[in-house]
Amino acid sequence: MPFVHSLGLGKALTGRLENAGIKTAKELASWNQRELRSISGVGSKSIDKIETALERVGLALAEDPLSPYECVREGRAAWDVRLCSFHLCESCVAEWTVGAFRGEPPVFDASVLSGSCQNCTQVATDLHLAQWLLCGNCERVARSIGRSIAAEQYVAARFEEAFRRSLVELERLDQPVLRAHDAQILERKTPSIDFMILEEGVPIAGIELKTGRSHLGGWAPVGAKMGTFQLDHGDCDDISEVADAEGIVVYLFHAQVIDRAEPPTTRFEAVGLWWIDPFSFSDSYQTSRTRPRETKTAAYYSTDQFRSFEEFEEHWRTGKMASVRQRFGQHGQPPLYR
Rank of each mutant, 00 (worst) to 15 (best):
C117E: 07
E208K: 05
A124Q: 15
D232K: 09
E171H: 12
T190E: 13
Q118A: 14
W132R: 04
Q131S: 04
L129G: 02
D80M: 06
S111F: 11
L178W: 09
F312P: 01
T318K: 12
A243R: 05
G329E: 07
P191T: 04
G329D: 01
G43A: 14
F159C: 07
S111P: 03
A220N: 14
T97Q: 08
K23V: 12
G217P: 09
F268T: 00
S302P: 06
I145T: 09
D174I: 10
E152Y: 11
Y337L: 03
Q131D: 09
W275I: 00
L54P: 07
I39W: 04
D237E: 04
E310G: 05
E269S: 05
G58L: 06
L113V: 07
W96A: 10
K296A: 15
I239W: 06
W79C: 09
D277T: 02
R76Y: 01
F328W: 07
D238K: 13
R293F: 15
I258L: 09
C89D: 14
A255P: 00
E187P: 00
E104H: 02
L273K: 13
R143A: 08
W132A: 04
S144K: 08
A298V: 06
R179V: 13
E269M: 11
A270E: 00
C236F: 10
L127T: 02
D48Y: 10
Y154H: 08
Q175E: 15
L216W: 03
Q184F: 13
A183F: 08
N19S: 14
S288A: 14
V57G: 00
E311F: 09
D126Y: 10
Y69L: 14
G146A: 10
N137M: 12
L83Q: 04
H233F: 07
S280P: 00
G8R: 05
Y69W: 11
H5T: 02
E171V: 01
L133K: 10
D126H: 05
A60L: 04
A157M: 03
D194K: 06
A224E: 13
E208A: 08
V72S: 06
V257P: 04
I185R: 07
E139K: 08
A110G: 10
T295S: 15
A53E: 01
N137W: 06
L178V: 11
H87W: 12
E294A: 14
G58P: 01
L127H: 00
V222Y: 11
A77Q: 02
P278I: 00
R325C: 06
E199L: 13
T211A: 06
G329L: 03
L28T: 05
V324S: 08
E187L: 08
E200T: 09
R164W: 13
H215T: 10
L134C: 09
W96K: 09
S288G: 08
L231V: 11
E313P: 01
Y285S: 05
